[in-house]
Design a protein around this nucleic acid. Structure first.
Lengths: 143, 143
DNA sequence: AGAAAAGCTTCAGGTACTGAAACAACCATG
DNA sequence: CATGGTTGTTTCAGTACCTGAAGCTTTTCT
């Protein structure tokens, strides 16, 4: 008894399911790589952000799409471990800049390398195929 | 000072970054859809699993790749809300089967529809392109 | 029967997250 | 300038998620 038009054709459902798998695997490998350095997923993400550039807590919250009060805790834990430090912003004394320490940058680099390795399923694809994939994903994300 | 061969060429990094975006958006929309029904991400995932088939707690834990003790809590909360119930397994009295209630199945169906709608960026692509995307993803996942 | 294994729960201990309340510092506007 | 609103951060209370260890019941192995 088909009481509604199908929401999505078979092909679309198939692609959606595959994307679901990609997402699952991505997260799994991300957390695994983070765990190798005794970091949680959230901590790894923040450390990655800070490795290239110090930034105010507020901006981290926006990037993570979460409340600023949450960032306080994450930075607290990273700071305890000496991977990040809080510095005053000379231009605005309300602001605290979170900056990766030398140790933090080193850890972030190791993490990035683990991830590159983990993401190597892309090795299956030729250059042409990767280009095609890139363009399709771009379009899909609504360039 | 290049002391190591580059981990990944520019194209690969670009694709990896795009996949990162897909993953971020997927999670965001998933949680959003779940929140519309006052469910957390984890609860929505479990309810989705159970909507098609009742299963032992143990199996849920394996699917979620987490400890069984964790599943106890998630099912507790779903059960409190009347979306899931625990039933004895007639074949093995140690086992408790988690089964979606009528209400649970209804909620799961609504959730699935929200997701289909949320995932509609695929509409950007033609049939041929979706086919190509499907095949590339399959290969990437190492079919 | 007795020992080992399997399935679930409970508990203690963390992390992640939100929303409200508090505080300091930065603007505006009158 | 003064004062009142806004912004950036933190603290706190409350919830969910998650692990690992310990405990209980039932099954399975020998």
């Amino acid at each position: 008894m088909e009481h509604m038009p199908p929401r999505a054709d078979h092909l679309t459902r198939e692609v959606v399911e595959l994307i679901g798998e990609v997402v699952a695997r991505y997260y799994e490998e991300y957390d695994e790589a983070a765990a190798k350095h005794s970091l949680t997923g959230a901590q790894a993400r923040v450390l990655g952000l800070l490795s290239s550039e110090a930034m105010p807590m507020r901006r981290i919250a926006r990037k993570l799409k979460c409340e600023p009060s949450n960032v306080t805790g994450i930075i607290d834990r990273l700071e305890t471990r000496g991977l990040v430090e809080r510095k005053p912003d000379p231009a605005d004394r309300r602001v605290k800049l979170a900056a990766a320490t030398e140790d933090g940058r080193r850890t972030a680099a190791l993490l990035r390398d683990s991830l590159d390795f983990a993401r190597e399923p892309l090795g299956e694809l030729s250059d042409d195929e990767r280009t095609t994939l890139r363009d399709l994903l771009k379009r899909m994300l609504g360039g």
